[in-house]
Amino acid sequence: MRNRILAGLGVAALATVGIAAPATALSSTTADLWVVHAFPGATVDIVITGAADVTLEDVAPEDVAPLVDVPAGDYQVEILLASDSSSLLGPVPVTLAANTSYSAVAHPNAAGALTLTPFVNDLSSIAAGESRVVVRHTAEAPAVDVLAGTSELFTGVTSGQEGIVDVPAGTYPIAVEVSPDGPTAIGPVDLTFDAGTAYFVHAFGAGLDLPYGVVMFEIAGLGVGPDGVPAGSAGLAAENTVNGGLAAGLGALLLGLIAAGTVVVRRASASATR
């Protein structure tokens, strides 16, 4: 992916592979913005205008670009077909508050149409020995249940929701089933989550044309020491939430997390550390 930074923007636009951006690059005047391409089949240009101007060129499906220290303010985001610059979506208004981390995700909605939704990335402290998994419904798919072994992480998750759960770091057999009592969409596949790291997972796929893929990035360095607070729960399914808040057009879904296997996960992941 080629990234072009336009007039006067003090921001690092980084390629998909080998990303290393500070997890705490926030201030009273800036926000972090991660741009995620989770719409199958189209290489696009993403044009962001407002308090600063950025154009990301030739963004392929499954690409991720972190834009760190974007000035807070109002923006317009337009998605253009890279081959001929025809407009696919937008301009879509997006407001970025200071001292906040966001993901702007281009994805199909439940009806299969291209949409763009901003998420707030939860960068709150993670209790010692735990990791955070944030799953977002970004595929053209019905409601699903997400399971870790026999434990249900989320049930009846539909497009327009985001799920967040802190779990003890370790390896879990993850599976996804169409809800309720539908076919298994993915897995079970063993996945490993590291302590002090937040994993932001975006489903990648259309309809029930299984298996799905994934677009994912991770932000490390969020853990607290053994004596730190807040204390996390030791239970696998504790502290899980399903939100439709600011991310009103996206939701929680682990459909892509396993389907393409660790090859896709590794290729499409980005790491950020303090």
Rank of each mutant, 00 (worst) to 15 (best):
P173N: 14
P173A: 14
E177I: 06
D194S: 14
G221Q: 07
D194R: 12
F154A: 09
M216C: 07
G187V: 11
V201S: 13
A185E: 12
F154Y: 15
A195L: 04
F217V: 05
D190H: 02
V157T: 14
A169F: 03
V167R: 04
A220P: 01
A198E: 09
T158Q: 06
D181A: 15
V214E: 09
A175W: 02
A206M: 15
D166E: 06
P168D: 01
S179I: 00
V167S: 00
G196W: 11
F204D: 02
V224E: 06
T171V: 12
E162S: 15
G187A: 11
F217I: 04
Y199Q: 01
V176S: 00
T184S: 11
P183Y: 06
F200S: 03
T197D: 06
T155A: 12
T158S: 12
I219H: 04
F193W: 12
L210F: 15
T192I: 07
G156D: 07
F193L: 14
P180M: 06
I219R: 12
A220S: 15
A203Y: 02
G163Y: 08
T197H: 03
D181Q: 13
V176L: 04
V215N: 11
V201A: 11
F193H: 05
P180C: 01
Y212P: 01
E177Q: 15
F204N: 01
I174P: 00
G163S: 13
P211N: 02
A220G: 12
T158P: 01
V214C: 09
A206L: 15
I186G: 05
D190C: 00
D209F: 09
G182N: 07
L210T: 13
T155D: 04
G187F: 12
L222D: 06
S179T: 11
Q161H: 08
P168K: 00
I164K: 05
M216K: 03
A169G: 15
V176N: 00
G163L: 11
G205M: 10
S179C: 01
P180S: 13
Y172G: 05
I174A: 03
I219E: 11
L191V: 14
L208R: 10
F154T: 07
I219C: 07
T158Y: 03
L153V: 02
V189H: 04
E162C: 09
G223Q: 05
V167N: 00
G160M: 06
A169L: 08
T197L: 03
D194E: 15
G213E: 09
L153Q: 02
A169N: 05
G213Q: 11
A206S: 13
F204G: 00
